[in-house]
């Protein structure tokens, strides 16, 4: 298939950016979107032109490195799929594809399609972990966990931190990411001792960088792991408890 790409090119954070048009002939429909970009880059390098910079690592949808806006949709047209797992069969011969980096004030453009997502690390640093050193892994079933809770925690833990939720949100809000990182700890017994301290710290760190949630639900459908906005409601509820409840008793929740 023959495609035309319009790709955002920007030399650095403060440099002026613009869309540049590239012909992408002879693309196989079995290629992933990143392999298609590799092909375009190989041709650019052969012509001694600067290749398109984009983030990628595992290319199997679990690392969260890749991710661009493709025709105005985060990670492109296929639901529940990261850019690396999006295949060119989702497009038609002759298509014009517009590729743009994630846009949020907190995400500086490093180069072309690569953005600096380190504000997400700041949110995790604020409390997205268990602080007690627990030694080696305990025996299975030492701590009983209801099946439903384990499943819900695992669904939240599927977050790969790609930031598509923030990129897709009309408000650039970080609620889905933050609530997933909270829920995968707070739904399990091991997360309880620091539950309310954690929600308070992570929400307030999130608000230093990102917008606020108006419940569009756009994040949920952009998420390559289809993480539910139910997590956001849980975060909101826990935040109120953290702020208002007697913390000595909140630990018994």
């Amino acid at each position: 298939m023959d495609l035309t790409l319009e790709v955002w090119r920007q030399a650095g954070e403060s440099a002026e950016g613009r869309f540049e048009t590239y012909d992408a002939p002879d693309v196989s429909e079995d290629m992933s979107f990143l392999e298609m970009l590799d092909l375009v880059n190989e041709r650019l390098i052969a012509e001694e032109r600067e290749p398109i910079a984009f983030d990628h690592d595992c290319r199997e949808g679990i690392c969260g490195s890749c991710g661009v806006m493709i025709n105005g949709k985060a990670h492109g047209p296929q639901l529940g799929t990261a850019t690396c797992q999006l295949h060119m069969r989702q497009f038609e011969d002759g298509d014009r594809i517009v590729v743009e980096p994630w846009r949020a004030k907190a995400f500086a453009i490093v180069r072309d399609l690569v953005v600096d997502r380190s504000p997400l690390d700041r949110i995790i640093e604020a409390g997205g972990y268990i602080s007690a050193p627990t030694g080696a892994a305990p025996d299975a079933n030492m701590i009983p966990v209801p099946k439903e809770s384990a499943d819900a925690a695992m669904d939240a833990a599927a977050c790969i931190g790609c930031a598509a939720c923030i990129a897709a949100c009309p408000n650039s809000a970080g609620q889905l990411f933050t609530s997933a990182k909270l829920a995968h700890l707070d739904l399990l017994p091991q997360g309880q001792p620091e539950r309310y301290k954690r929600v308070e710290a992570m929400v307030e760190t999130m608000e230093e960088f990102f917008g606020s949630c108006t419940n569009h639900g756009e994040c949920e459908s952009a998420c390559p792991k289809s993480i539910s906005i139910d997590n956001i409601a849980l975060m909101n509820r826990d935040y109120l408890i953290a702020k208002l409840k007697n913390r000595k008793l909140a630990g018994q929740h």
Partner: peptide, 19 residues
């Protein structure tokens, strides 16, 4: 807050899924 949080707006048209 939300307006400021975007910074540079998307330069290509958005295609909303559920908003």
């Amino acid at each position: 807050t939300n307006l400021k949080a975007r910074g540079t707006h998307y330069q290509s048209p958005r295609d909303y899924l559920v908003a």
